[in-house]
Amino acid sequence: MGGDRPRGSRYRLADARERFNSWRAGRPFLAGVLTAMGAISILYPPYAGLTIGQLPIRMATTAGCGSLVIGGLVVMLGLTMWLQPVMHVFAGSGVILLALASIPVSNLGGFFLGLLLSLIGASLSIAWTPGQPASAHPSRAVEAPGAAVTALATDVRTQDEEVAQPPSATRRRRRAEADRRRVRSD
């Protein structure tokens, strides 16, 4: 947890932020956020009470039960995107189906706001691919100088590939290898 840092709340906060960022990088985080926001806007209108002065205004429709079921399932699939990133395609597909089902069932999909947020989150979830770890990223990898050139210059061939080459090319390659060995031994 940052053993080389001095102790203090500022450094603990920085460590917590680093841990959160590394956790967030390994999953479709924004897809889950948008999906959860869409679920909330699907769930909210049937249960919301608006009061203007002394006059309570309530939406008393049959959409309450459907909104609860659809919104609850969309929330669960949004959490699945975070907690089980391997299931991102399944969760995204389920959210798309539920968001489309919310149009007739749940007040036009939460007055289209919940529908749009859920569809965008589901699309991001389906399109998400796991990133490379920081050590595997080419710009962050630490290599010895000239390692890439050496790796490209190393020519490893099988016996079948040598047979496919004309005899003169094989002889030239063997002579070049022998010359390299002789230079290294000197």
Rank of each mutant, 00 (worst) to 15 (best):
V105R: 04
A148M: 13
L116P: 04
A148Y: 05
G71K: 08
V74A: 01
L77E: 05
D160Y: 05
P138Q: 05
T154L: 02
I57T: 12
T158E: 13
S139G: 15
L116R: 04
I52C: 06
Y47R: 11
A39G: 05
D179C: 05
D160G: 07
V163C: 01
I126C: 12
L79E: 00
A141G: 10
P145I: 06
H88N: 07
I40C: 09
A148P: 01
R175V: 15
G64K: 00
R181M: 14
G66S: 11
L117F: 15
R173K: 10
E162V: 00
A122T: 11
G49D: 06
L113Y: 09
L119D: 06
L108W: 15
V183W: 10
V105S: 02
G146Y: 03
P166A: 10
V163E: 12
N107H: 08
T158H: 11
M76Q: 11
A122E: 08
R182P: 00
D179P: 04
T62I: 08
E143C: 04
T150A: 01
R173H: 08
L124Y: 14
G72C: 14
S41K: 01
T62A: 10
R174G: 12
R172A: 15
V69A: 09
P56F: 04
L98M: 14
R140V: 00
S118D: 09
G78K: 01
L73V: 11
E177F: 08
W128S: 07
P145A: 12
A127M: 11
T62D: 10
R180I: 08
R173N: 08
L152Y: 04
S102Q: 05
R173D: 13
G64F: 00
W82A: 07
D155R: 15
L115D: 02
G114F: 12
M87K: 15
I40Y: 14
L100N: 09
N107D: 10
L55C: 06
L119T: 04
V74E: 03
R171F: 14
P167M: 03
L113E: 06
A144V: 02
V89Y: 02
D155W: 05
R172G: 14
Q84S: 11
P138K: 11
V95Y: 03
R58E: 13
A153D: 12
M81Q: 02
A48E: 01
I120S: 11
A147D: 02
S168L: 15
S106N: 13
L115N: 03
A164F: 10
T51D: 09
E143I: 02
P56M: 06
L116Y: 10
